[in-house]
C-alpha cells in the first residue's frame, strides 16, 4: 500500500489545473516528490510538481465532515469569517511569494 493509501485520500486544492486527485492518488505522472509526514498529521503541505506547479495537500481531519462544515459556515459570527478570510489571503500571498523566490533561485525550473 502506498503512503497516500495509508493516510487516506487527501483533499486536494490546486493553484492551477495541472493535476487531478486521480494521479495524486496513484502518484503516477504527477512527477511530485514530497514528504507527506505533515499531511498525515493534518497540516497543509505544499509540494512541487513537474512544471513547477504547486498543490496544497491536506489530510482529512478526524471527525471532519464537509457537509457539516458547509452548513455551519453560515452560522459563524462575522468576526470568525473575517479571520478565516484574512488567514486565507495571507497564506495564499505567502505561498505565491515563496514561488516567485524559488523561481528566482532557479529560473530554469
Amino acid at each position: 500500500m502506498s503512503l497516500l493509501g495509508k493516510i487516506g485520500m487527501p483533499s486536494v486544492t490546486a493553484s492551477s489545473p495541472v493535476s487531478t486527485a486521480g494521479n495524486i492518488a496513484s502518484g503516477e505522472g504527477a512527477g511530485f516528490d514530497a514528504d507527506f509526514k505533515d499531511v498525515a498529521l493534518g497540516r497543509p503541505r505544499t509540494v512541487m510538481v513537474s512544471g513547477r506547479r504547486r498543490l496544497a495537500l491536506t489530510a482529512p481531519v478526524e471527525g471532519h465532515d464537509d457537509e457539516k462544515m458547509q452548513s455551519s459556515a453560515g452560522a459563524e459570527p462575522a468576526s470568525q469569517q473575517t479571520a478565516l478570510a484574512i488567514k486565507s489571503a495571507v497564506s495564499r500571498a505567502a505561498d505565491d511569494i515563496r514561488f516567485v523566490l524559488d523561481q528566482l533561485k532557479d529560473p530554469r525550473g
Partner: peptide, 25 residues
C-alpha cells in the same frame, strides 16, 4: 479592529512559509 486576526494570520504564515527566513512578515 483587525489587528488580532491579521497578526495571527501573519504568524501562521511565518510558520509555514518562513522557512530559512526567505519570506517573513
Amino acid at each position: 479592529e483587525l489587528k488580532a486576526s491579521v497578526m495571527e494570520a501573519l504568524l501562521e504564515a511565518n510558520y509555514f512559509e518562513g522557512y530559512g527566513g526567505e519570506c517573513v512578515f
